[in-house]
Nucleic acid binder design. Structure first.
Lengths: 194, 194
DNA sequence: ACGCAACTGTAGCACCTGCTACATTGCCGG
DNA sequence: CCGGCAATGTAGCAGGTGCTACAGTTGCGT
């Protein structure tokens, strides 16, 4: 059915645009009318193409996470785990990826008490993201056996860093913290390999 | 003036109670009427004793952070940095302190885009919290010189862990991650001391 | 005892929220 | 050319938001 295809296309296009908006303006206070107005549509349309706000949010979470992972997988393999962590952090503080991870942090905060669709979306995103992190570490010299542990530590610290980022962006303390994190992840990767 | 004292007392009492409510129900969707109803009052009263919702929120943030820090300072000094981290995490997943830190995470997420009073409240809370963390590490054998770096890494990872906590509470991966973190913080403490 | 000021209750405002009923458009197949 | 259906626009609903105007009520100091 051609119309169904078209419908799907429109829905996908809206999902991309709403995701752009959410990345820009944040997820927490998001409400339909402002985002619709920014896209040149009406809340009516969003609710037509998505079954409700929850559906929209879930789709946005999924879309943003796919972008995160695509960006992560596009990073070149580093020469060591330590370098990989530093490169990842550099990417995580620059435009696109930073916003995606900021969105993830917001979603995680919204899901802290188990509220849907945030909690479920975060759970799904986290799994795919961790898998991509593992691949990055392995590609940078970490053993497959040690990678999950190192990825876990890296992920946890990364999210915490994003929480602190607005407080100390560009400070020496932040950079030192990232360096310490890189050493720590490298140590875990090493230890697990032995 | 006695009345002024009373006023202050009432305000302080309300702050405590609203903080209790926020710790229970979360900070993100917080609105005046439900919390007032839960306290047996009306939104009118909250707005009388506080100059507005922002003032209330700022007070709640401050109150919760004071509780966090008091709890942190009540922890006994551990025999090593590693043990201190493990003990802190144990405390951070139990009742009172866990809720305080969850509230902090929510506030940090709300302040990600610079919105007040969240961003400012988080900034203030973070400073006091870090100072207390430093003291805890020093009391557990860390050198004063190395403590700030170790505390920074610990704090960042701790907040990230809280974001993931609902996803993997009680899993082996989480415990391993905490253990890895403890080693990493100990390593930083060691390295900085030398 | 009385006045004043702090305190609290009732109603209401203007605005926003997600969502829906209904009407309309425009395109595509027969 | 036209019937049907997906896509869209308009208007509105019920409920929630922070906040305020106004009217008491209480309790203290004089």
């Amino acid at each position: 059915m051609k119309t169904a295809a078209k419908d799907g296309e429109r829905r996908a296009q809206l999902a991309e645009e709403v995701t752009d908006y959410a990345l820009e303006h944040g997820l927490i206070g998001l409400s339909l009318r402002p985002v619709a107005a920014a896209l040149g549509t009406s809340d009516r349309m969003l609710l037509y193409h998505f079954s409700g706000k929850d559906d929209l949010i879930a789709t946005v979470l999924h879309t943003a996470n796919e972008r995160s992972i695509a960006h992560l997988r596009s990073l070149p393999a580093a020469s060591s785990v330590r370098e990989a962590v530093l490169a990842l952090w550099a990417a995580s503080t620059e435009g696109r990826l930073e916003r995606c991870q900021r969105l993830y942090v917001e979603a995680a905060a919204l899901g802290l008490l188990g509220r849907e669709p945030y909690a479920g979306g975060v759970r799904a995103s986290n799994q795919a993201w961790l898998a991509a992190l593992v691949d990055l570490l392995v590609a940078s010299g970490c053993s497959r056996a040690a990678a999950p542990r190192a990825a876990n530590l890296l992920d946890v610290a990364l999210m915490g860093l994003h929480l602190d980022l607005p407080l100390e962006r560009g400070t020496a303390a932040l950079e030192r913290c990232v360096a310490d994190l890189a050493d720590a992840v490298a140590a875990v990767a090493d230890q697990g390999s032995r």
